[in-house]
Amino acid sequence: MSRIIKYVMFDILRNRFVIGYCLFIMLITFGLLGLEEGSSKSTLSLLNIVLLVVPLISVVFATIHFYNSYEFMELLLSQPVRRSTIIYSEYFGVSCSLSFAFAIGMGVPLIFLNQGLVSVYLLLSGIVLTFVFVSIALLGAVNSKDKARGIGTSLLLWFFFTAIYDGLVLLIMFSFSDYPIEKYLLAFISLNPIDLARVAILLQMDTAVLMGYTGAVFSEFFNSWEGLIFASGLLLLWAILPMLLTVRIFKRKDL
């Protein structure tokens, strides 16, 4: 499999998009850390990049790359190569290149200008979210033969996790505000990888005290080893589960 991953990454690097993405992230990060006074405000802006831009780019790029690799996949299919190897290679090739570009793009400025635990959390979350959303994108792409529809599905999934899901949870919280809904909040947040990453990062920042009582409860949990293992385990699950489903579908699909 590593041989094929190598070719997928090789192909992505030729594309130059990933280099542009890396430079874009680096430029913005340097800009935010350099221009804005107070690291808390610039960290919040970086948080938005990790939570909005990284998933969006991952979803769109992975979907487009999947469709553009159709020829390559077809070529491989007539070779003595497992189908699962092909789709896993696509997954790891794309997510590794994207997260590598992200890690360099955001990591280098952070090392120079903003060392600290929050920066580590930002980088790790960005990397994991890349894997998660490439995985989600491939699930969308493998289900539809039409490129436009596939991209549409992926964008919809991105928007679902970015806004729609949270909106629904807020609506539920608002409607059931008389009930002790806090208990279920951890479940609600765990079901959305973006929320999970956001809360994990915010709880490392001094902004966390604004989150009130619930925030304090969460803070205690997420800063314990159990919480850390729980959160990272869930995020990994988010990266793995859609991919397993994708492989299952890809193996049975007519190509």
Partner: peptide
């Protein structure tokens, strides 16, 4: 408040 700084 746990949704502080969220896109929604």
């Amino acid at each position: 408040l746990l949704y502080l700084h969220s896109f929604v």
